[in-house]
């Protein structure tokens, strides 16, 4: 693969990553949000695939396939199944901060991410490290979603968004963290989602709802 094509494809994947993160923040219907999340998983897998092709690494190709299966297949499937259990009326997110303001906040977060990740880019300037701010932005947007959403499922998506961003940063820093650690991380994420999914179901059993506004029993 030629250098310029590599850069082009890499940045394209990063752009898709960013765009899907923004759309998750923007859209209201949970079904569509989950679809966006799946798309983001695919974009992440594409990112890893581009890196794999560039470095001619079989191991990285395997990781790309793993990312695709987990983040574009398994996790969205689990989310969709949780959603299917929810009632008709519970299919829209109801953000604490209205969408227009959250979008403007996301704009501010982008600039923050850019400022914060300067030392990272400066340490080893290359096509891949230039894109680190994109990963950091996705992390921050994910955190923002996690903090400002009331539905259990949207918080879950926020958490996963963060995780996608972190994974992207991990791959963009070009040196893998080691296969053991990567496997462990993926497994942990999968388990965390399973746990949260079970808790969502339980919450619906005990509260009849997954609106986290109902969670007011424990406070000082």
């Amino acid at each position: 693969m030629s250098e310029s094509l590599y850069v082009q494809l890499l940045y394209l994947a990063c752009g898709a990553l960013l765009l899907t993160a923004v759309l998750v923040l923007w859209l209201r219907e949970l079904v569509v949000i989950i679809r966006m999340f799946a798309l983001q998983g695919a974009a992440l897998a594409a990112l890893v695939g581009v890196l794999a092709a560039h470095e001619n690494s079989g191991e990285l190709w395997a990781v790309a396939v793993g990312v695709l299966v987990l983040r574009a297949g398994v996790l969205p499937y689990l989310l969709r199944r949780t959603l299917a259990g929810a009632g008709e009326a519970r299919r829209e997110t109801s953000p604490l901060v209205n969408v227009a303001s959250s979008l403007l906040a996301a704009a501010a977060l982008t600039l923050l991410a850019y400022a914060v990740s300067q030392p990272l880019v400066a340490l080893a300037p290359s096509a891949a490290t230039q894109a680190i701010p994109v990963g950091v932005t996705v992390v921050l947007i994910g955190f923002f979603v996690l903090v400002t959403r009331r539905r259990a499922l949207s918080q879950l998506v926020g958490f996963l968004l963060m995780d996608n961003g972190i994974t992207a940063v991990g791959f963009l820093t070009t040196i893998g963290v080691g296969l053991v650690v990567e496997l462990g991380v993926s497994l942990d994420v999968l388990l965390a989602v399973l746990v949260l999914q079970i808790l969502t179901t339980r919450m619906r059993e005990t509260f009849g709802d997954t609106d986290l506004d109902e969670l007011r029993e424990l406070r000082d």
């Binding site: 923004v22 227009a100 996301a106 704009a107 982008t110 230039q130």
Partner: peptide, 23 residues
């Protein structure tokens, strides 16, 4: 409508940011 437009503003801003860091 402001939501839609704020979103497009964010995208535009992301485009500018990207044009700076993805050179």
């Amino acid at each position: 409508v402001p939501e839609l437009l704020a979103g497009s503003f964010l995208l535009a801003l992301l485009a500018v940011a990207a044009s700076f860091f993805l050179v």
